[in-house]
């Protein structure tokens, strides 16, 4: 498992946020569509219009709340799991890996 669970969770919730945002957009377009219908005189669209608007605000709210939570997670983890901004990650440990690998080979040969 290359990534620990915590990270997986975070990624999944970020994906969910993305989908929420998308559906917000969809609801917006639906709302505008229903307004248009209303303007034409199609009165019975009123309830639909309400629904669409409500779902727009609903999904927007959910997305916002989730994003806020994510940002808070980021904040909490900067010192521990995440590096601070201006430090570059270095690929250390590769020499150990190679050494280990060669010792294994040696062992294999010697046996």
């Amino acid at each position: 498992m290359p990534q620990p669970e915590f990270i997986q969770e975070r990624l999944e919730s970020l994906n969910a946020v993305d989908n929420q945002l998308l559906s917000t957009l969809l609801h917006a377009s639906q709302a505008v569509g229903t307004i248009e219908e209303l303007k034409r005189g199609n009165e019975n669209m009123k309830s639909q219009f309400e629904n669409h608007i409500r779902s727009f605000y609903g999904s927007l709210e959910e997305a916002t709340v989730a994003l806020r939570r994510e940002i808070r997670h980021l904040d909490e983890n900067v010192g521990t799991r995440l590096l601070p901004i201006n430090v570059n990650k270095k690929a250390v440990g590769q020499d150990n890996e190679k050494m280990r690998e060669q010792f294994e080979h040696l062992e294999h040969e010697a046996s």
Partner: peptide, 20 residues
């Protein structure tokens, strides 16, 4: 207004599809 609404709706829908 009608036309603008329509256009706006189209814009929204199109960008939704593209983004999706």
């Amino acid at each position: 207004k009608q036309r603008s609404l329509e256009e706006s709706r189209t814009l929204l829908k199109d960008s939704y599809l593209a983004l999706e």
